[in-house]
Each structure stands twice: as C-alpha cells, then as structure tokens.
C-alpha cells in the first residue's frame, strides 16, 4: 500500500494529464521508487489509480528498460554496452564489476545491495566507458575506478 500523500500526489499528476494514460509512465516510476521495483501489488495500484486494468499496466511496464518487474538490489548498476563504451573497454568494466559482485549480468547480490544490468547507450559517449547507478552517471570508468565505486556504495 502506498501512503496517502503519495496517492494524492499521483492523483494530482493524473488529473493534470491530457489523458490518464499519459501519466502512466510517471505513475509506474513513482511506484517503483517507492517499492524498489514495480511489484505485482504496485501494478494493481497503478491500474487502480489510472483507471486501467493490471494487464494494461503490464503491457507498458514490460516494454520499458528502466521499469523493473522483478526484485532488484538497492542499487541498480546500469553499465552501458553500446558502441562507444564498447570501443573504450566497456566489456572489461562490466566483467570486472560482475567479478567484484560475484554475480552474472542480470543478477542481484545475495545481500540485496546491487543488481547489474547492461543498458542502452546512456548518452555519455564522450566520457565512455560509462555507467549509471540510480540516477547518477559515472564517467570514464576503469576496472580500478569501478572497484572504488562499488566500495563507496557498499560503505557510504
């Protein structure tokens, strides 16, 4: 269950949209931020808020890269695997992080702290290789700086 003030906020967002559906992505993102991922419960809540059916939410939720329909760690590490980062050694960075976390790409660490996902170009090609943790983008990541980064998030 989402808190009442959040429900109110989302209802206001929906009311300001041209159609309810227009606000669907915003609603899903808010619910995801609240729950950590878009849980089944969140899908049903989103459907109720938007006047849609859970299936109609699911059709959208499963379309987008950054809507998680499975549990993810507290920090989702999106490592860009597109061409510019690839050219600058992105694969090595990805491999290094997977090794450091002891998981394969797509996996979540046992402590629930990290999920490692490849992602579409982050639009930071001049600073490649690049990755995003939460909303923060990191530039020119190397195997060494990746290790430091993981450490920072582990022990903030």
């Amino acid at each position: 269950m989402i808190p009442e003030n959040m429900r109110q906020e989302l209802q206001n967002r929906i009311a300001s949209a041209v159609t309810n559906r227009e606000a669907a992505v915003d609603v899903m993102k808010s619910l995801q931020a609240h729950y950590g991922w878009l849980t089944d419960e969140a899908v049903v809540e989103a459907a109720e808020l938007l006047g849609l059916t859970p299936l109609q939410i699911e059709e959208l939720a499963t379309f987008y890269e950054m809507i998680y329909r499975r549990p993810v760690g507290r920090y989702v590490i999106h490592v860009c695997d597109s061409i510019s980062c690839w050219a600058m050694g992105g694969e090595t960075v990805m491999g290094k992080i997977a090794g450091l976390l002891g998981i394969s790409v797509g996996g979540t660490t046992a402590d629930g702290l990290f999920t490692l996902l490849p992602c579409c170009c982050l639009g930071n090609c001049g600073q490649s290789p690049t990755l995003m943790i939460g909303d923060t983008i990191y530039n020119r990541v190397t195997a060494e700086s990746a290790a430091e980064l993981i450490e920072q998030y582990r022990n903030p």
Binding site: L52, T53, L55, Q56, E58, E59, T62, F63
Partner: peptide, 9 residues
C-alpha cells in the same frame, strides 16, 4: 477486452 494483451518487447 481489457484482460488480455501483449507484453514484453
């Protein structure tokens, strides 16, 4: 109908 559709990509 609203309970059947297409998911994923």
């Amino acid at each position: 109908g609203t309970d059947f559709g297409v998911m994923g990509s």
